[in-house]
Design a binder for these strands. Structure first.
Lengths: 191, 191
DNA sequence: TAAAAAGGAATGAACATTCATTCCGTAAAT
DNA sequence: ATTTACGGAATGAATGTTCATTCCTTTTTA
């Protein structure tokens, strides 16, 4: 239990500190302290800080995509599917604000650009569900015939912005407001 | 002419370096070098790096808002006004990608949060045109009756995402595509 | 008791900022 | 007209701080 335990503590401490303070409010020494380990110990589990951060991001993705697919029914109408996935994503971010904050930091950093590129080029898995849904939606004329990148922007742009506003305390999103927001996103992409 | 010249060089160098490399690819020494001044000279014009960055942001805002108001006609229908302003914003970002990249960096940093807070609280000027338009649009039942923060998210979320994708080279936005994207944003906010 | 793991002080690189000095244009003095 | 004095602008080497990373010692495990 000792070994995986420490690793986990380190990852958790990194997530918290980076989410709360940004990359630069999270020096290795502080991560070590919060994780309750020595500074050198981190390097037994992660080659360097970059690897730690990249690994953390990977682990978050692995949590998120299964979570939002909960109860996903690929046979329902496109609109329903869209609402289901988008609502799931927004709720996940609201309920796991540390994850959201970290991911935002990550995307707005040198790491993030390479990652985005991989994703769009299809090199990387993860957004596949959305990717497939959008392609299907367009082919069925249920959604606007725009490049996928733009559909992604129309769908996720507002979701991320709203999640940010909620987490920063600029607004309180209850069930109803979440539903109305996601509906509005659908209005943006639907034909 | 000598005095404003140096200051301007410093601001320009900062914009370029921060936009291209992020805050951390822009040490003061490098800014000084690119500006063609000594490292100490920067401190004759700006108290410290924070002040330099904040000042730079302020100057950018002063350029942007007038630019997108070009030809704005407050008597046209709400839809037209929305399309005009949003198109202007998107085009500005595409044509001034350094500005866009810097602003994104800024918003995703400790500076940015305080700034957003000020904006939403109405403490800060700038978004007034949008603010007013949205409030009017809602009151006229032309736009969805959602909190302003959410309307902002629906309108600007996609615009910023699309500008980012264009600048990173994931897509090429021509006139037609810009128009279709902005129309889609309108679909998101309109009743 | 040997090997693996953990610890944390020591190291050195990167950085923002400072400050003693130089430079240069203007103006007073001769 | 030439020299001298002055003051603010500019400079960049020096400083002190903050980190990521290393390395050697101590502790735990097998």
């Amino acid at each position: 239990m000792a070994k995986p335990d420490k690793r986990e503590e380190i990852v958790k401490a990194s997530l918290e500190l980076i989410a709360e303070q940004g990359f630069h409010g999270a020096p290795m020494a502080m991560i070590a302290e919060r994780a309750g380990v020595g500074a050198g110990t981190i390097y037994r589990y992660f080659e360097n800080k970059d690897v730690l951060i990249t690994e953390l991001y990977r682990e978050l993705e692995e949590r998120i995509f299964p979570a939002i697919q909960e109860g996903y029914a690929p046979d329902k109408p496109i609109r329903e599917q869209f609402l289901h996935l988008s609502t799931g994503l927004l709720k996940y971010f609201i309920e796991n604000s540390l994850d959201f904050r970290f991911i935002e930091q990550f995307h707005n950093s040198p790491y993030g650009v390479a990652c985005r590129r991989d994703k769009l080029m299809g090199t990387k898995a993860g957004c596949d569900i959305f990717h497939d849904l959008f392609e299907y939606g367009i082919s069925q004329q249920a959604m606007k015939d725009l490049p996928l990148v733009i559909i992604f922007a129309l769908a996720f742009g507002p979701i991320l912005a709203v999640a940010r506003d909620h987490i920063l305390g600029f607004i309180v999103l209850d069930e109803a407001m979440i539903a109305r927001t996601v509906e509005a996103c659908w209005d943006g992409v639907r034909r």
